[in-house]
Design a protein around this nucleic acid. Sequence first.
RNA 1: GCCACCCUAGCUCAAUUCGGAAGAGCAACGCAUUCGUAAUGCGUAGGUUAUCGGUUCGAGUCCGAUGGGUGGCUCCA
Length: 619
Amino acid sequence: MESRGYSSPHDWARSFLLAKEESKIMAKMNEKEREEKLYRIRHSLAHIMAEAVLEMFPEGKVAIGPPIDTGFYYDFDLPRPLTPEDLEKIEKRMRQIIAGRYKFERREISEEDAKELFKDQPYKLELIHDIIERGTDEYGEVTEKPVLSTYQQDTFVDLCRGPHVEHTGQIPADAFKLLTTAGAYWRGDEHRPMLQRIYGTAWLNKKELKAHLQWLEDVKKRDHRRLGKELDLFSTNQQLGGGLVLWHPNGGHIRKVMEDFCREEHDKAGYEFVYTPHIGRAWLWETSGHLDFYKENMYTPIDIDGQDYYIKPMNCPFHILIYKSRRRSYRELPMRYAEWGTVYRYERGGVLHGLMRVRGFTQDDAHIFCRPDQMPDEIDKVLQFSLFILRSFGFQEFEAYLSTRPEKAVGEESKWRDAEAALEAALRRAKVPYKIDEGGGAFYGPKIDLKIKDALKRSWQLSTIQFDFNLPERFDMSYIGEDGQEHRPYMIHRALLGSMERFFGVLIEHYGGAFPVWLAPQQVKVIPIADRHNDAAWALASKLKEARLRVEVDDRSDRMNAKIRDAQMQKVPYMVVLGDKEIESDTLSVRLRDGSQKKLSTDAFIAYVQDVIANKALL
RNA sequence: GCCACCCUAGCUCAAUUCGGAAGAGCAACGCAUUCGUAAUGCGUAGGUUAUCGGUUCGAGUCCGAUGGGUGGCUCCA
């Protein structure tokens, strides 16, 4: 046994490369197999859960139960609400069914047999009807030939296209868990009955399940609402009203740094800043069309001298009025109006969520008006700019959705095609992976939605770059071209961070509250060991302040350990412990929030921190 | 808006299954302590149990309404 047959370094390298290629392919195969396996397990667990639930409620009606990203769910119509105790019982029963090693048997059946079999299951009858009449399956996807198939395990038969595991014994009984119950409309339609949905999570083995449950814990720990309270960043409050945010000094500071940075970069990128009021006459919103298609998100008007004024849900009409304040020449274009504009939108009570979904928020909004020949370049620039800004805040992974012309749309088709082509070309050049959402655009123009992935691999939609073929028309915008004729400008809406509120929420969760030093509300905490070191601490603090560092002295007569703990909990990047040793040797003992320590001179420390700030680094 | 659940001190949570004297930790404040890299000790104060109504001899606990929140659904920056 002997040689492994590598006769020369060259051969060795070749096999190594081959092996690497193969393992890549294998990894891909394994990934596919894994997904397939998980799909079967999760789908089968949904059926097993349905069996357990129907045993508990024999008159219960079942709707649909698909696998999802992290597990599965099933929707039921039951005589009473489910309790957490019910979930425990159902889960226990599911494990018994798994232990029974029941086969999953597939049968194809005729329409008549299916209708007879599911005669007491109105939701299934509706699905059968759709499969036959519309050729869609239970997920509403169009199938080639309508085939009705059922899967049965033990006593439970479900209308289902499969696939499933061969028998229940193939499901790891210790790798799933029922999580929550939730209301869900039948077929997602709020006019149809509200069903009870049970969510479960399922994995290949116990270790993966544990990892997922741990991930859920991490998500909870990083919840921006929790950190917002702990770090005194912001609050919402009952007396104020839902969906309205109070930015505390700590959060306000971060926002100020964010805004200052973005403003300066916008300035460099050729944007001009405009300011517009919070309300405008009905004429504005009638002309823009918002009172037709956006009314349900707008608040009731204020009567001023017999005229209706609306609180703005968007900034665009105001920017258009600035454009229209005088005649424009082709020489002035492109014009880029930027405004950190605060808008108010009515959101249904149930959807409000911390900073992520609010009723009043500030967009980093801008509108670009340009000539057709400038349009592709403008799109390119705005996408690059967007990526630059998001990278500056520490996001590295992006994905994009390009939404194209829907059935009902305004604007010439050729303009749509040009715009879509420009958007796609920009995405290609920027090397952002993207998907095309065919027909998913708004009626007034195609768009790019840019999503980032945070530290927990969740994606968030932040930036949006949106063409508008509607408003220039409605407001009759024009410029005088080289030919002396009137032309219609292109109009592009764009927001990079989206809204300051949501972006801040994402930022809090991305960093778990431990912000990069340039953003951190407090950058340095000076910790005198005993009261006799306070004078030196204050002296040091004022020196650091002169260097534009944000510093505080913890001069409470508490123990050093307690002060360190507090600073650590507040996630202050640098703690400078000051005692006899430091004063004598004229060096600083710096504790970083990751627990490591450095000893260096005051000047070296200042230089170090300034360097970290300049690089927008974490520590 | 819809379904379910929740609301007790500033915060996090207790308060025997079935109704029987509202409690702890942290934070705050006071006093003592002056300390070497994640919690010093003792003490003080803090509540119309979200609000309103009902059942009951008696309600934090049971019922109803309102407000707010949480997880979803729908919608979305």
